[in-house]
Design a protein around this nucleic acid. Structure first.
Ligand SMILES: [Mn+2]
Ligand SMILES: [Mn+2]
Ligand SMILES: [Zn+2]
Ligand SMILES: [Zn+2]
Lengths: 162, 162
DNA sequence: TATAAAAACGATAACCATTCTCATTTTAAA
DNA sequence: TTTAAAATGAGAATGGTTATCGTTTTTATA
């Protein structure tokens, strides 16, 4: 885990960006909240806990930089904010997302389901694919379970009143 | 073509929304620019040509409404604006997009390439898929042709100077 | 056709995520 | 240490979108 920060710092250094405590704290926060999809404001509040003097503009600048270095993906789920999603190390593109229209949860699919589709796109549309964004909107497994449970108890209640 | 407007108007009426000239003009503009991906501002300027008294707020409200009726998809390509994309009639989900990182062009894929992938998502992730968003980022066929042409003329020039 | 309530409208103020500006501080290499 | 370039923090500015509110339009009903 610690290595991960070191490697990102190295990457910054290689591209002749300076290693500032603000940048390190921001990367730390992203690593510690890898499963979430934080907005710039979210990151700002979390970074402030370990580096209270940091400014919001610096957080934006750092996230922008990390996006250019392909350390994070800047994604947008249609609410009014950009979210910053850490890439798995060495991943060559953005992972897929499952957005629940019932509870708002965002789950991830780490396996690449688009290999075949990309072949078709390259062949049939002569488009050289560099990256992709794939998001499914629907009902998550938790909300499906909830509905099923409610249906069962409604049935049970109906048996009682008959 | 004319039928398309009529059907959308009917759909509004069925859901007890009122049929106003502003809404009709907005739908007209969307139909006349089906291949584009217009922002609210874009739509506003185009609608003003045929209904100069219309307000920007009304355009936003109409686009929001059409999005709820699933007549348009509100999409976001990562520049700071929402874009409104007319659905093909009867289409049950959003079509795919090809965004060129060289020239910025946005091309469309109308065929559904995700049927197999969605089966996997439903089975392996117990996620009930209702809709999807799929965008590829890469180099469009026009830009690829341009690069190839440049390489050829560079080669030709090189032959001359030798 | 006249009436009236609900819905929709236009103008514009407010909101708010993001970017820009600029004076000050920090970094990194010599 | 010195120094130039890069980075930072505070807060102003920007710009897309939404909210407000008084007026107008629509549509159902009498
Ligand atoms: Mn993610
Ligand atoms: Mn489209
Ligand atoms: Zn859910
Ligand atoms: Zn192109």
């Amino acid at each position: 885990m610690e290595n991960r920060v070191e490697r990102i710092k190295k990457q910054l250094h290689e591209q002749s960006y300076k290693l500032t405590p603000q940048r390190e704290a921001t990367v730390q926060v992203l690593l510690e909240n890898e499963e979430d999809h934080l907005s710039a404001e979210d990151v700002y509040l979390l970074v402030k806990e370990k580096a209270p003097e940091i400014g919001l503009a610096t957080v934006y600048r750092t996230l922008e930089l990390l996006n250019e270095l392909e350390v994070v993906d800047k994604i947008n789920f249609g609410d009014g904010v950009s979210r910053y999603d850490l890439r798995k190390e060495g991943a060559s593109h953005s992972h897929h997302h499952l957005v629940c229209i019932e509870c708002g949860a965002v789950d991830e699919i780490q396996e690449d389901l688009l290999a075949e589709v990309e072949k078709i796109v390259e062949k049939d549309y002569q488009f050289k694919v560099k990256d992709h964004r794939l998001t499914f909107h629907g009902v998550c497994h938790r909300c499906q379970a909830k509905v099923k449970k409610n249906e069962e108890s409604a049935e049970a209640a109906s048996l009682h009143t008959n």
